[in-house]
Design a protein around this nucleic acid. Structure first.
Lengths: 350, 350
DNA sequence: TTGTATGCGTTATCAG
DNA sequence: CTGATAACGCATACAA
């Protein structure tokens, strides 16, 4: 026996259907055509154990028949959280970041999440805007690799507080809680620098990146360790900080040449490219007169001539790791190995 | 004078606040602390003209003070549409696509939209899944560059119908309604082929891509036109279809060599890379014995040796154009010029 | 096992 | 110009 309210609703639905004959079908529609209530449909579709098997089957059949699909907006509102994960990166056209995103997406999609992506273009302002937008979407989690301009983490803490799970990757604020996915930066930089030394380069400098970011701090530490383990004193005058793009990399390399370096470990991907520019300008031959190892195995590095030796990260795996950390509710720091690809730019000894 | 219901609500809010002392502030909170109703707050915040200036100011002040930010999920549900735009691309780590996304995002963000990105990995199944997910989010629009596996547009038509504005770019189904952003493919391919002919190459073939996509059809037409305008008969035996990735490009080029070609216009970005592989394998010199022009000015093309001549698109501008077409409600076809970058791989005549 | 009632936060419609 | 009220579609506590 139907209640009066129920019948009213049904009448309303009929009218709605006539007026606008292509609305999305809702659980109420399914309920109406099955003579049951929306709550039961909701439960059946959610796979609740508190619904009769036969009812569930009937609901599922009808839902498929009517082409029902859950309105995730309504569902998210009701649940107070969404099935979206926000990923905030400096620039998506950097191969490293786009591959991290790819890795994260592959895992998250499997688990029923969608990914919303924001670019900061290295600007702190844009990062704040993106984080706020994501919070307003009530995303289930935020994966962040912060902008260079974000010298400290106060804005992140302020905006996302502790309500939204945070997973940081690569460019990580050490003082923030939550999971962190890092490359084995120290170890990697150690290996890379060691390799340059083993090739007979005598004065190995580094284009070190930004010390506001954990990743670069660790790479510098690895570089230093390699020197020390080879009995070479660390010399801060051939450590060039704050360079990460091609142009500043070029400038840093010019200074390195002045300072008598014959090799550079570049902690950034594009600063190494700038170093190549500088060396070409000066007519210095690679690798005979000058050795180079870059970081991040972007595909252009193997296509260049001379091909560029790189300390490769595994961005896809980092994305997967970030997604898994979130899905499993972990808040630890995970280290993804790095791998040295020795190519022409550092291979002086055959 | 407050109504009874209003006071109840206020009491409820107090209790909620005590129980959970860190909830997001809502328009109801603002209304309560200002002694007005949520409707007025909503109107004030929406910039409605039907609200007193002083009230608006008071509301805005209070909102800022309390750190209010609109719950977009609720807003979207109520409005029946969202401020998200879905972008569906084969792979975001393709520089072309990531730059299109960048361009679209830059315009959309200004206009208050956020971007949700889905990758299809060239799979029709994944494309269907992505389109459905976006529809379930009630996105404001979908920007699509379809997967290679999607040989026809039936699934797109079926899923998004006419409810959601569709903007297609680059890989476009001509039979679907809505805006289309295309490179000047025919003209571009004409110029590229003409250039090869002008360099003295005698038998210019093409790695033509997939004929299910408008863009490739047009490039083939441009190629053909260039031959005809030079009085060279079109020869379908040196048109290699269905190649778009590096490996298939390599295979196509091997066939082209067999068929006596001494130049290729490659309609894909990575197929040209495969062609380089094939020529290296066979020990054929570029550009002296064989000329190559690729499509899409990916950054590796200028870093390679020999550097690769390309028919460059303007992906960032294409993204902007897509966003503008959507924002202005246009449904026309827009053509973005292409530009021939002549580099070493095709420059036989100094 | 199912139905009833309510609220998530916002906005639109209608009164006043 | 502002207030009351309902509804967007779904999920859940509670009742039956």
């Amino acid at each position: 026996m139907q209640t009066f309210g129920f019948l009213c609703k049904r009448l309303y639905l009929c009218i709605r259907y006539i007026v606008n004959n292509h609305v999305m079908v809702t659980i109420t529609d399914i309920a109406a055509s099955l003579g049951i209530t929306p709550s039961t449909v909701s439960r059946a579709l959610a796979g609740s154990s508190r619904v009769k098997e036969s009812t569930r089957l009937a609901v599922e059949k009808k839902a498929a028949e009517m082409g029902y699909e859950r309105n995730v907006v309504a569902s998210n509102l009701r649940k107070g959280r969404s099935n979206m994960v926000g990923i905030v990166v400096p620039r998506i056209h950097r191969e490293f970041f786009s591959r991290v995103i790819g890795g994260a997406e592959s895992v998250l999609n499997e688990a029923g999440f969608n990914v919303i992506i924001c670019q900061t273009m290295e600007s702190r302002e844009a990062e704040i805007k993106a984080l706020k937008a994501l919070r307003n979407y009530r995303v289930a989690a935020i994966f962040l690799s912060h902008a260079i301009e974000s010298r400290d983490s106060s804005h992140v803490r302020e905006i996302i507080g502790t309500d939204i799970p945070l997973v940081q990757f690569d460019r990580v604020f050490p003082d923030l809680p939550g999971a962190k996915i890092l490359g084995a930066n120290c170890e990697g930089a150690f290996t890379a620098t060691k390799h340059l030394i083993s090739q007979g380069y005598k004065r190995v400098g580094t284009i070190a990146g930004y010390m506001s970011s954990q990743a670069f701090v660790e790479r510098l530490a690895g570089y230093r360790l390699a020197l020390e383990s080879a009995g070479i004193p660390f010399d801060s005058s051939i450590v060039f900080e704050d360079s990460i793009v091609r142009e500043t990399g070029r400038e840093a390399c010019l200074k390195a040449i002045e300072a008598g370096c014959d090799a550079l470990y570049c902690a950034g991907a594009y600063s190494a490219l700038g170093a190549v520019d500088a060396l070409r300008e000066k007519g210095i031959r690679i690798p005979e007169e000058f050795g180079l190892v870059g970081t991040s195995n972007e595909s252009f590095t193997s296509l260049m001539v001379p091909s560029l030796s790189t300390l490769g990260q595994h961005p896809f795996e980092m994305g997967q790791a970030a997604a898994n950390a979130f899905l499993e509710g972990r808040a630890n720091t995970e280290v993804i190995p790095m791998e040295l690809h020795i190519r022409q730019s550092s291979k002086r000894i055959k």
